[in-house]
């Protein structure tokens, strides 16, 4: 029997369908759109072009905060929830490789977070466009150089978030592969999210290391954990700086390597698991 991407795809599709029918996803969506809608409440202030920057920051912030939360909850719930409910027994008794199951679960939950980020980006672009248009109407002199909002940059930001979330989803898949409860996998996910956010501290300490024990420890931490700080390009974009394509490709490679690493570990753990 050959390894089949079609079977992994079916599992991913079913995972996606489950998440769509889960009220949780809807809740996140409502929360996020409410956040956007609230950015329109600031309509009364007229900051001119800096107001647009405010909205963009707000939107980027929303993606950076809600994206990982959704990624962790959805991956843990969809992966280990299935094991806890013993639905996985039936599936794993079917002719399929366990690695297909792991990859399918990962792809399904990653797709969900991807859709979520895409929806947020669309909302953000629309919000920015509407505000920009009304500001232009009120005060056309401020926009002599034309529209200042670059929707391509919003998309670039979203794409970078999706790359970052692939690492997070694969990490949660790894925890789910040997955890025995959803709550454990979720807590580990949140812990690791924070750790990855602070990873640059460890890697700074590694390079500045004086004590060999700390050096080894920090070296380990900074190699095993990805540095999420690298993916925070919102500040550059908001400052109007452009980021070179090469930098994006580097980020993509970085994310792919870490994702592949965590997924391989997840497959190894899952293959050894008993049900």
């Amino acid at each position: 029997m050959k390894w089949s991407a079609a079977r992994a795809g079916l599992i991913a599709g079913n995972t996606f369908r489950e998440a769509i029918r889960m009220k949780l996803f809807l809740l996140m969506l409502i929360l996020a759109t409410a956040a956007f809608a609230s950015s329109f409440l600031f309509k009364e202030f007229n900051f001119g072009s800096s107001e647009l920057k405010f909205i963009a920051d707000f939107g980027f912030g929303g993606m950076t905060l809600f994206g990982p939360i959704l990624a962790i909850i959805v991956s843990a719930q969809l992966f280990i929830g299935e094991i806890e409910h013993r639905t996985a027994l039936t599936i794993l008794a079917k002719p399929l490789y366990r690695s297909e199951y792991v990859i399918g679960k990962f792809v399904g939950s990653w797709l969900i977070t991807m859709c979520f980020i895409a929806l947020l980006s669309i909302c953000l672009i629309i919000a920015l466009w509407i505000r920009e248009s009304s500001i232009i109407q009120a005060d056309s002199e401020a926009f002599t150089t034309g529209r200042i909002i670059n929707w391509i940059q919003v998309c670039a930001f979203a794409l970078v978030q999706v790359l970052k979330l692939s690492m997070l989803c694969s990490l949660v898949a790894l925890f789910s592969s040997y955890a025995t409860s959803t709550i454990f996998a979720m807590s580990m996910g949140f812990l690791v999210w924070i750790a990855a956010q602070l990873q640059y501290i460890a890697s700074d300490a590694w390079s500045a290391g004086s004590n060999w024990l700390y050096t080894v420890l920090f070296a380990f931490a900074s190699l095993v954990l990805p540095n999420f700080h690298l993916f925070e390009i919102g500040d550059y974009l908001a400052l109007g700086e452009t980021i070179k394509l090469v930098a994006y490709l580097k980020l993509a490679l970085y994310a792919i390597v870490y994702t592949a690493f965590y997924l391989s570990l997840a497959v190894v753990a899952f293959n050894r698991r008993e049900f």
Partner: peptide, 21 residues
């Protein structure tokens, strides 16, 4: 060997399936 399970049907005890399907 996963391929042998093409020939096997399994009903677990107290089965539980996706609520949402």
């Amino acid at each position: 060997e996963p391929s042998i399970r093409n020939e096997v049907g399994y009903l677990p005890e107290a089965p539980y399936y996706y609520r949402f399907l």
